[in-house]
Amino acid sequence: MRAYGGISIVNAIPCWLGSSAAVDLKIKVSIEETRERDPSESRLVKEILDFFEKRWNIPHVKVKVESDVPSRSGLKSSSAVSVALIHELYSKFSIENYLSPPKLSAILSIKAGVSYTGALDDAAASYYGGISFTDNKYLKILKMSNPPKDVVVMILPRGDRPNVDLNKLKQFSSSFAGIFELAKRSIFDAMRINGTLIAEILGYDKTPINEAIKRGAIAAGISGNGPSYFALSKEGEEGPIYDSLKKFGEPILTRFVELEGDNQTI
């Protein structure tokens, strides 16, 4: 199963309302039956496999992950692995009429202790493509929509995110609720405000963001809880912005992913 990395439109931690956009950084997950489980499984993979083994008595499986996305980067790799693995397990063992992969991913992510909100916004965009709007507290996908066309996404990847003080973000719940409402009208404005505010609250260097905006970026900021940066431009106008980011590392050029219709229903 293929899923996608993504970038944040609205961080869900402060007020549980979140929005994410899928980008064309692929994560592929495959499974095969095995006699013994891999002892190096991540906490989330272990939680998912434990759940399936207990609920449906499936045999042990070995999980193989191929990813274009660095872990702990703010680019939704955990959600992508989770939804892809759940989809593979449903398919291989003919499990039907249960929760959609994004919703089950959110539940098990919280149970595994790898996400405070469950990251339903990230999981939905990763699985379905497009742009998600979710209420993570009540496990509701409020809306899925296609992204704007003719937009270039530039990502300055950073891995191994430092520990984040979530209480700092929770203090700004009303501000992020307002950003979520703004996102319904303009994802670019929301991304710009969200991305800059996350950098300010969590203490990330805002120089790459400011430089990208000065060079004409439609939006720029920190994705997720960091540490990766992103910037957006209109098609054909990415050159100066890309050059500004290149001062700080090797940017990735990619695109938004449109909604895909071949996955399970929301």
Rank of each mutant, 00 (worst) to 15 (best):
E32D: 12
E33I: 00
E33F: 01
E33M: 02
T34G: 14
R35C: 06
R35K: 15
R35S: 15
R35Y: 10
E36P: 03
R37K: 10
D38R: 03
S40D: 14
S40V: 00
E41N: 14
E41H: 10
S42Y: 06
S42T: 13
R43L: 14
R43I: 00
L44W: 05
K46S: 15
I48T: 04
I48N: 13
L49D: 11
L49M: 06
F51S: 07
K54G: 02
R55K: 13
W56P: 04
W56L: 03
N57E: 15
I58V: 03
I58S: 06
P59M: 03
H60V: 03
H60R: 10
V61R: 04
K62R: 13
K62F: 10
V63D: 02
K64S: 11
V65C: 05
E66D: 11
E66L: 05
S67A: 10
S67V: 00
D68P: 00
D68G: 01
V69G: 13
P70R: 03
S71Y: 09
S73F: 10
S73M: 09
L75Q: 08
L75T: 01
K76H: 08
S77W: 00
S77K: 13
S77V: 04
S78P: 11
S78R: 03
S78I: 01
S78L: 05
S79A: 15
A80N: 09
V81G: 12
V81N: 08
V81W: 07
S82W: 08
S82F: 09
V83M: 15
V83R: 13
H87K: 14
E88T: 00
L89M: 03
L89E: 05
S91Y: 06
S91L: 06
K92N: 04
F93W: 02
S94C: 01
I95T: 01
I95M: 05
N97G: 03
N97I: 00
L99A: 11
L99R: 05
L99F: 13
S100L: 08
P101W: 07
K103C: 11
L104W: 07
L104G: 11
S105V: 02
S105K: 06
S105H: 09
S105T: 09
S105I: 01
I107A: 13
I107Y: 12
S109P: 05
I110M: 12
K111N: 13
A112T: 00
A112N: 07
A112H: 06
G113D: 09
G113W: 04
S115W: 06
Y116F: 14
T117L: 07
T117C: 11
T117P: 11
G118T: 01
D122F: 04
D122Y: 04
A125W: 09
A125Q: 11
S126R: 10
S126H: 13
Y127W: 10
G129E: 14
G129L: 12
G130F: 14
I131K: 09
I131E: 14
I131G: 14
I131Q: 12
F133R: 08
F133S: 12
T134A: 15
T134G: 14
D135H: 06
D135C: 07
